[in-house]
Amino acid sequence: MKARVTVMLKSGVLDPQGKAIGQSLNRLGFANVGDVRQGKVIEIELDETDQSRARAKLSEMCEKLLANTVIENYAIELR
């Protein structure tokens, strides 16, 4: 099974990279660009067939390593 973990800064946590990207888009003439946030995508191959077990394992990975939950949220997608 393949999993995709998306890690984003929590709303309310300043994201200077997202802000810089937004400003660059504005400068390129994309005037209708609002708030921009940047995050990370981590793809993981998992030797597991049970969806709920896979989700539990991935949550544990996120809590222990993939995300810093002081500043980041994570989302898990299975495919």
Binding site: V13, L14, P16, Q17, A20, N68, V70, I71
Partner: peptide
């Protein structure tokens, strides 16, 4: 120390990038 939670909080990218 912050990543191990021995100290609270986190160190983020400098505001100036």
């Amino acid at each position: 120390l912050c990543e191990t939670k021995l100290l609270p909080g986190a160190l983020m990218r400098n505001a100036s990038l």
